[in-house]
Write a protein that binds this DNA or RNA. Structure first.
Lengths: 144, 144
DNA sequence: AAATTGTTGATTAACTCACTCATGTTTGCG
DNA sequence: CGCAAACATGAGTGAGTTAATCAACAATTT
């Protein structure tokens, strides 16, 4: 029941980019040094976030990465789903990537006790992460 | 961010044992058939639960496993920690198995934004799973 | 042109997951 | 007793994932 390093690094990288938002672009090298992330691994992460439409990048000597959406419009849940896949603790309760469990002995899914608990765990996690934005994150707390 | 099959199978096995609680013992074979779990793998799980003090077993022709605590005194959180390790999504916010994160750039842990969010995620998960007992589980819902 | 950066894809070593196998030990029953 | 049924334990295995690493290339600035 863990998030991957990928997610963790991704969030920390976005933290730096949120701080720089509106003023400068950041190069992968700088982000890597400030957050102690291996540069080459960081690159994969930044590219994934770019493909997902969160970042833009500029090549060349004065290049770098920057956010293309406002920090208050990006939730941590969204970021983690990009880098780590669905939040749900088991496939059969995921709302964004449902997968039926092959070996469940319950014909009616709604009656499966495992699903009932895991569903509420999923909701609790999603409630927090989908309502926590990069702006909250950089501020160090959630203010509603 | 998933629970392992081990936890899932473990919970399903305990569901059967909860139903049988007070009346009979169950053999691994029966549990395996009813819940569609590979027998040999199930055995590892049952032994882990036995070592943790949740089950007792009896050998021989009329043997089997049974719960040695009341279903209402066993929480799902406890079971999952036995089979899957800590609930916390990253090591540095675990209360039962804290592990300092080596590469965190924040000297003061309390100021790390990652820790703040992950801490609240951990609490939300633990809140649900530590207050949900096998009795609730077998009943199919939580009644406070 | 040279240096600095981003882009892409392939490859990797280590590890975990979900089993499976082999082998043993204990127990109950005829 | 003898033997089958059941529990006990440890080692092994194939597939997949994680966390990087490497190599080669393309674009941009000085």
């Amino acid at each position: 029941m863990k998030f991957s390093k990928k997610s963790e690094y991704g969030l920390r990288a976005l933290l730096e980019l949120t701080r720089a938002y509106g003023s400068t672009t950041l190069q992968r090298h700088d982000i890597a040094v400030r957050q102690h992330i291996p540069v080459e691994f960081l690159e994969q992460i930044l590219l994934a976030l770019k493909r997902a439409g969160l970042l833009s990048s500029k090549r060349g000597a004065k290049g770098g990465y920057c956010l293309i959406k406002q920090p208050k419009d990006i939730s941590l849940g969204h970021v983690i789903r990009i880098l780590d896949g669905p939040l749900a603790p088991i496939g059969c309760v995921s709302k964004t990537a449902y997968q039926k469990c092959s070996d469940c002995p319950y014909a009616n899914r709604a009656h499966c006790p495992v699903q009932q608990v895991m569903g509420s765990v999923r909701d609790a996690i999603a409630d927090i992460l989908d309502n926590y934005t990069l702006a909250d994150f950089a501020a160090g707390s959630k203010h509603t």
